[in-house]
Design a protein around this nucleic acid. Structure first.
Length: 885
RNA sequence: GGGCGAUUAGCUCAGCUGGUUAGAGUGCCACGUUGACAUCGUGGAGGUCAUUGGUUCGAUUCCAAUAUCGCCCACCA
């Protein structure tokens, strides 16, 4: 006797156990194997101290589906996991923790602080990995990497040094984005522009040796402390005579020149603009052109520094208020206008960014961007969906140099040493003994660390052992597909592309599958501050990982945001339950001895052929969908096949055989049931790995784990188009009969004879050979075939079918009015259809230009509808006549 | 200021290269305790596929414009 499944589907009973089972059997492990094609996916490394959120759940589910599917297809699959040190974020959290303890970063010093940070990482670092495991991810944990691992760091240094030697990394004074809260420079990508309602302050600057004034407009009046000029457009008639004169900076009484530069827009404001080279990127450029020099008036915390005179020490926003007050008081404030503009905010802490001149390290982007663009144009990189290619191109075409130095400690320290005596810069992996210029032995290492994305940009090859030429690297690189959120294209995707092309000479991945955002049920972004986040782990706890996974991939297309509804998770849990119970049913009806043999093609009955043929189709379509990354469609097809075809029809059709006396027929049914069930579990496995593996363990004749079983293949011997047509006829007839009965309020339990009158021998045979289904599924007492309609009067319900008519003798129940109503409805439906078809066919253009196949199909429909309509009309007339009498 | 996406049943969404009686889940209504499943079964109601043009024999599907919502990019002080 076969062991059967527990009575209720309870994912908690087996999900963790199966994950351990897969792990201990090394099924996730990838090895260089020359006999197989490799398939590689890089997991976007989550923040090491982070927690699993729906975004992770979504993209890791997708990656796992692809990985499991490819593994079953026979590829040597590597899904490379790892975590990211997330410098700014982690450092901020450690700093916050220290603050709570009354300590500060500075007190502890660099080493002490790093110890704390490592401790923190050890404490929380495992969380996200364990959470991912709950989801069922089949990545190779034996290859787990952390961006601060020694070999990862080695790769980082190597790339830094190479780029420096090539002149692609430089140090310089540039306007960068400064976050006064994080106290570090950040890159352009890390700045978020937010529209805000602000003001435009018009300030009068007196012109020296004149009674004239020149009025400028500014959104940041506090920066006037650092003004080094006023600029006007050279073509501007209003100011031509002032060019070359000096203006007097109000409040500080410093003299600044009035200069002319094309950059000034005559239409905006007053056409005159204050130039603050140290606090504005445009002004910086003007300053360079005119050699204005620099004057920084703010410190790293966003406070006015000693160059700000009496305002020194004030926070920038406080200073703004005071300066405006003072200007007003002293009569310099001309007017204030409402003004909307986009203000840069720190992507991580939401603080208003301060553009400020600062000495930082940069990657020269132009030479790196070019090959990355070419790769795209040459089709070496493909985006799914395609539209994101435009975003990629646009960013690369407008790229600016990448500021990579951060004033943080948690991260990769720049491999840079400065000579204390001659300021020589030495880039070296280890501390040089002496300065190679002046010979001084007094050298200091750069204190800055690198942007976190500098290290994750190398992930595609650093994880495979680069710069060593490892076998892994040769075999698994380049990777096949990257699955990530569209919000990370600039941060990560692009940087991996140019870094990989530069170092490896080849793109890091062929396809980029972009996911959308998972929103809450009201369409809002899930966020901590709103408190509307849904914890994937709680969902898994209640409904199981399979239900969650299925929810995340169905009814969703790449790159589109989705809303998360609990009802959907529930529906998918129900689906799992359905499969569970279908399996229970099958198992309790299998004879172990019987199913040891496979079914014989010659002995198949009609519905066997039908389900096998349908399965064959599903295999083909699902595989095609997966190849095109149409995961949602693939999932839907499997779902429909299992629920509709297998459970609702095939199992129901086969029941009488299982309970019947015909041993041979019964045996075949058992074998087909099992055969199809096995393939169902295979097809569903990538999507719902746990329940399918669990079921697999109970199925007879399975000698290995489902996870490493072979993906089903389309088999042309199992294509039975004729049987499909036959069963489709049976199904639609049963539905029509059920429908008629329901509309006539006849309880399903009340059986009645069904009398068929067929129009030709073929249909007649079809009905005879499928008799039993009408008994089992359409509440037939007995199925009777008659040659003509004679005697089938109005005491019978008439169900008009294609090329046949069914009659249900329900004399005592029949309600003429109801029956007329039902047939009227049928009539209208047919008439509508007929009108549509006739409209088409009477269209000259359609008949002459449309493909013959389409035209013929319409012609067939026309005949069919006409025939059916005639029958309906005949019946209606007869009924109405009867009514009158 | 540029670019992009969405608009299909009450709700959430599929619908891939133009031809289907436009689908699913959920919700709603009616019926159902048949030996896998009430986390179920059977049936039903519910859509002029945002609007307007265009291409075409034929448009939910392709093109253009409009409207509404949303997103991304951008140094107009």
């Amino acid at each position: 006797m076969l062991k059967n499944l527990p009575k209720t589907y309870n994912p908690k009973d087996f999900e963790d156990r199966l994950y351990d089972y897969w792990l201990t059997n090394d099924y996730f492990k990838a090895r260089v194997n020359k006999d197989k094609e490799p398939f590689t996916i890089l997991m976007p490394p989550p923040n090491v101290t982070g927690n699993l959120h729906m975004g992770h759940a979504l993209n890791n589910t997708i990656q796992d589906i692809l990985t499991r599917w490819k593994r079953m297809e026979g590829y040597e699959t590597l899904w490379q996991p790892g975590t990211d040190h997330a410098s700014i974020s982690t450092e901020a959290r450690v700093v916050a923790k220290l603050r709570k303890e009354g300590k500060s970063k500075e007190e502890l010093g660099r080493e002490g602080f790093l110890e704390e940070a490592w401790e923190w990482t050890r404490l929380y670092g495992g969380n996200i990995k364990n959470q991912l495991k709950k989801l069922g991810v089949s990545c190779d944990w034996s290859r787990d990497r952390f961006t601060l691992d020694e070999d990862m760091s080695k790769a980082v240094e190597e790339v830094f040094i190479r780029l420096y030697k090539k002149g692609l990394i430089y140090r310089g004074d540039r306007i960068i984005n400064w976050c006064p809260n994080c106290v570090t420079a950040i890159s352009d990508a890390e700045v978020e522009h937010q529209d805000s309602h602000g003001h435009l302050w018009y300030i009068d600057y007196p012109v020296k040796d004149s009674d004239r004034k020149i009025t400028i407009a500014t959104t940041r009046p506090e920066t006037m402390l650092g003004d080094l000029a006023i600029a006007v457009n050279p073509e501007d008639e209003r100011y031509k005579d002032l060019i070359g004169k000096m203006a007097i900076l109000p409040l500080v009484n410093r003299e600044i020149p009035i200069i002319a530069d094309e950059y000034v827009d005559m239409e905006f404001g007053t056409g005159a603009v204050k130039i603050t080279p140290s606090h504005d990127p445009n002004d910086f450029e003007v300053g360079e052109r005119f050699n204005l020099g620099h004057l920084v008036v703010m410190d790293d915390k966003g406070k006015i520094n000693s160059n700000g005179g009496k305002y020194a020490g004030l926070d920038r926003f406080e200073a703004r208020k005071r300066i405006v007050e003072d200007l007003k008081e002293q009569g310099y404030l001309n007017k204030i206008e409402e003004h909307d503009n986009a203000v840069g905010h720190c992507e991580r802490c939401d603080t208003v960014i301060e553009p400020i001149i600062s000495k930082q390290w940069f990657v020269k982007m132009e030479p790196l961007a070019k090959p990355a663009l070419d790769a795209y144009y040459e089709g070496k990189i493909r985006f799914i969906p395609e539209r994101f290619g435009k975003i990629y191109v646009h960013w690369l075409e407008n790229i600016k140099d990448w500021c990579i130095s951060r004033q943080l400690w948690w991260g990769h320290r720049l491999p840079v040493y400065y000579c204390d005596d001659c300021d020589e810069i030495i880039v070296s992996r280890t501390q040089p003994e002496k300065c190679n210029k002046c010979g001084s032995t007094s050298l200091t290492q750069e204190t800055d660390t690198l942007d976190t994305w500098f290290s994750s940009a190398l992930w595609p090859f650093s994880t495979l052992g680069w710069p060593e030429e490892t076998d892994d690297l040769k075999y698994f690189y380049p990777t096949d597909v990257l699955v990530t959120g569209y919000d990370i294209i600039f941060f990560w995707v692009i940087r991996m592309v140019f870094s990989s092309i530069e170092q490896m000479g080849e793109v890091p991945f062929k396809d980029v599958f972009l996911t959308g955002l998972v929103r809450d049920s009201q369409g809002r972004k899930m966020s901590k501050s709103l408190g509307n986040g849904i914890d994937p782990l709680e969902i898994i706890d209640v409904y199981g990982a399979d239900a969650l996974r299925f929810t995340l991939v169905t009814g969703n297309t790449p790159g589109n945001d989705m809303r998360f509804h609990m009802e959907k998770v529930e529906a998918n849990r129900n689906f799992a339950n359905k499969l569970w119970n279908a399996t229970r049913f099958v198992l309790m009806n299998l004879d172990e001895e019987v199913v040891k043999e496979e079914f014989d093609l010659a002995e198949l009955e009609e519905e066997d052929k039908w389900i096998l043929s349908r399965l064959n189709d599903v295999i083909k379509n699902v595989t095609e969908n997966l190849e095109k990354y149409e995961l949602g469609l693939a999932a839907q097809k499997i779902y429909d096949f299992i629920w509709d075809d297998y459970c609702d029809w095939y199992i129901e059709m086969v029941k009488s055989r299982l309970y019947g006396e015909d041993a041979k027929s019964k045996a075949i049914a058992q074998r087909v049931l099992l055969y199809v069930l096995k393939d169902i579990n295979k097809l569903l496995h990538p999507f719902m790995p746990f329940i399918t593996e669990e079921i697999w363990q109970y199925l007879p004749n399975t000698d290995m784990a489902l996870i490493i079983s072979q993906w089903p293949k389309y088999d042309e011997r199992l294509e039975f188009k004729e049987a499909e047509r036959a069963i489709e006829f049976v199904k639609s007839s049963i539905k029509a009969i059920r429908n008629a009965r329901a509309e006539m309020d006849i309880a399903p339990s009340r059986r009645s004879n069904i009398i068929f009158v067929a129009e030709n021998e073929g249909v007649k045979d079809l009905i005879i050979s499928n008799k039993r289904y009408f008994i089992d599924l359409a509440s037939a007492e007995e199925v009777i075939i008659r040659e003509s309609k004679e005697g089938l009067d109005n005491s019978f319900i008439s169900v008009v079918l294609d090329k046949a008519e069914a009659f249900l003798p329900l004399k005592d129940l029949i309600d003429y009015e109801k029956e007329i109503g039902r047939l009227e409805k049928e009539k209208e439906k047919l008439e509508d259809e007929l009108r549509r078809v006739e409209g088409k066919l009477s269209n000259e253009g359609f008949v002459s230009k449309a493909p013959e196949k389409i035209v013929n199909a319409e012609r067939e429909k026309k005949v069919k509808y006409e025939e059916m309509l005639a029958k309906v009309l005949e019946r209606l007339e007869s009924l109405k006549k009867d009514m009158v009498e």
